[in-house]
Design a protein around this nucleic acid. Structure first.
Length: 567
RNA sequence: UGCCCGAUGGUGUAAUUGGCAACACGUCUGACUCUGGAUCAGAAGAGUUCAGGUUCGAGACCUGAUCGGGCAACCA
């Protein structure tokens, strides 16, 4: 596990976040035998995104830090939305991030029998009843946050009748929506969740694991706390919107369990990222409407998308570490995520030469037909990475951006009469250039000075600019995909009157063909990562073909020139 | 107009029993550089939403207000 940034952060005396403070207090008080057992409880109804990554790092992180355990539990109580495809992707993503759950993955559906028994216990205790009313009626009677609700006419049904009806619900005697099982709590509670919440609904649907054995399914509230209890969870971390559910979480446990052991729900603020949408519903919509190419489209904030984009597990963990946890709403600058990958990739990825927008450069005084192999350092940040040979010759490609016919004086690159260093090769001087019929530069003619050869050359003049290049006859062609933020608005979901679609960035994907790469890249394998010198970090996409590798730009290098240029 | 949360530089997070606000990203200088990257050195930027109160002393405690978020799915 590459966790250098994490290490360096934790070496300093880091103050505790509010969850760590609670855990340490519990530990001191010997609460729950001083165990720490957390869980990551996704619903398998979509792919995990960077917001889940925060939760994963938190839950598994707390377990690691306090020598505890962390379960993976699928919260699969709604068969209509859940699929095994999602279960698989979630397991893959959690492991890819570098975490391993305790024992086997668990499922709320593992507890359906126990939950059913508990529901009957509630009925026997006179704390639950079957309501025959329609959804609309129940919702009307619920009142509003400012107005108390009124009791259902079925609230006073006998225990026997409730038991009978509930069993028949279970047996599938009634159609969807005909009846529900409700807790009998308080229809006037200021907390809407305590106004006789629904415990079970009738759903004639096939469940991804239990198939057709169940005709009734528990609601989240009736399943979550009890599942925590059954798994021995001590600290049940969830996001802020569940804060008002906590009294109910505790109420069920108090009614159903008589041990002193209790899991405790603690809420934290979910992650928001600028220029990004995070709701599963909206992400699903992007996928379904083909605005992006699937859940793992590199523009998606999904873990699968980030992975395909070239983000590393270590960089995401470092990111999660840096953003911290608290209870106030927050919007993290995507720049911080980008910083985290750059930081990681800078130390680990080999440098290579790639010209994305090639223009031909001819060195007039270089021997015709001569090719020489030059030694290039693979990664100056990691001397163990060694060197490689790169062919150099009379005809090269350089980046179109690296030549200007009439440059401003702060331009350190090539221009008529100016000198520049070719990375790892020679200093060249531009003598002339040729335009095509569209007035675009077609060929640049230079001369070189043999004496200036990198490393061995006797002349090492001070030269401001260094360009990357690729020798023409040995270059391989590639497709390069440049990604930009998917949305142009800082807070695309923050507009009540407009859908996020209105803020899509039309230039979020630019596909470049005919890019020229140094020959060793022909052997690059899917998922491999490189720094294209002076351009950014790129990783080999799964769409790559034998003779047409495809590279995704993970993130560009920081670039002061674009900044100066823009001023 | 009910209940529950929250409020600290541009953005996040910190300040352990109250002792004159720290760290990271970003921004701006400068050095260095065969990546306008990295690295290194430095700077600017908040007096902690507001008003009262407790105290020798409050970002921390109390009261009230303001602002923001959440809660009325047979979703999670």
């Amino acid at each position: 596990m590459n966790n250098k940034p994490e290490e360096s952060l934790s070496e300093e005396k880091r103050s505790l976040n509010f969850i760590e403070a609670i855990i340490e207090e519990d530990l001191q008080n010997n609460k729950n035998e001083s165990r720490v057992h957390t869980r990551f409880p996704p619903e398998p109804n979509g792919y995990l995104h960077i917001g889940h990554a925060k939760s994963i790092c938190l839950n598994f992180g707390m377990a690691e830090k306090y020598n505890g355990k962390c379960n993976l539990r699928f919260d699969d109580t709604n068969p209509e939305k859940e699929e095994t495809e999602y279960v698989d992707s979630i397991m893959e993503d959690v492991q890819w991030l570098g975490f391993q759950w305790d024992k086997e993955p668990y499922y709320a559906s593992d507890y359906f029998d126990q939950l059913y028994e508990w529901a009957k216990l509630l009925i026997r205790k006179g704390l639950a009843y079957v309501d025959d009313q329609s959804q609309e009626l129940i919702s009307q009677q619920k009142g509003t946050p400012t107005r108390p609700g009124i009791p259902s006419p079925f609230r006073l049904r006998s225990i026997e009748e409730n038991m009978d009806l509930f069993e028949r619900m279970k047996n599938g005697e009634f159609p969807n929506g005909a009846r529900v099982l409700r807790a009998k709590i308080d229809m006037t509670s200021p907390n809407m969740h305590m106004r006789d919440p629904v415990l079970y609904r009738i759903l004639h649907a096939e469940h991804h694991r239990t198939g057709n054995t169940w005709k009734i399914y528990p609601m989240y509230d009736f399943a979550h706390g009890q599942s925590d209890y059954l798994e021995g969870i001590t600290h049940s971390l969830c996001t802020l919107e569940f804060e008002v559910h906590r009294p109910l979480y505790d109420w069920f446990l108090d009614q159903l369990i008589d041990t002193t052991y209790r899991p405790r729900q603690i809420e934290f603020a979910r992650l928001n990222l600028s220029y990004t949408v995070m709701s599963k519903r909206k992400l699903l919509e992007l996928v379904k409407t083909n605005i992006v190419n699937g859940w793992d489209d590199p523009r998606m904030p999904t873990i699968a998308g980030l992975r395909r984009r070239g983000y590393t597990p270590a960089s995401i963990r470092a990111f999660a570490d840096r953003i911290g946890v608290a209870k106030r709403d927050n919007v993290i600058d995507v720049g911080l995520l980008e910083f985290s990958v750059r930081e990681d990739l800078n130390k680990t990825s080999p440098r290579v030469m790639a010209v994305l927008d090639p223009v031909k450069l001819i060195i007039s005084n270089y021997p015709e037909g001569q090719i020489e192999d030059l030694e290039l350092v693979n990664n100056p940040e990691d001397l163990d990475s060694g060197i490689r040979m790169v062919p150099f010759g009379k005809e090269l490609y350089i980046e179109r951006d690296d030549f200007m016919v009439d440059p401003p004086n702060k331009y350190f690159r090539l221009a008529p009469g100016r000198e520049v260093r070719l990375k790892g090769a020679y200093v060249i001087k531009c003598e002339s250039f040729e335009l095509d019929s569209n007035n675009l530069v077609k060929t640049i003619y230079c001369t070189y000075d043999v004496e200036t050869k990198s490393g061995t050359g006797s002349k090492q003049p001070k030269i401001k600019g260094t360009l990357h290049w690729v020798e023409a006859s040995n270059a391989i062609d590639a497709e390069v995909r440049l990604y930009d933020r998917l949305f142009m608005d800082e807070d695309p979901s923050g507009h009540k009157d407009q859908d996020v679609i209105a803020f899509l960035n039309p230039e979020s994907l630019k596909v470049l063909n005919g890019c020229k790469l140094e020959p060793m890249l022909a052997k690059a394998e899917i998922g491999q990562q490189f720094q294209f010198q002076r351009l950014g970090y790129f990783s080999v996409d799964k769409d790559s073909l034998k003779n047409n590798p495809v590279f995704n730009r993970t993130v560009s290098l920081k670039d002061n020139w674009t900044k100066t240029k823009g001023q």
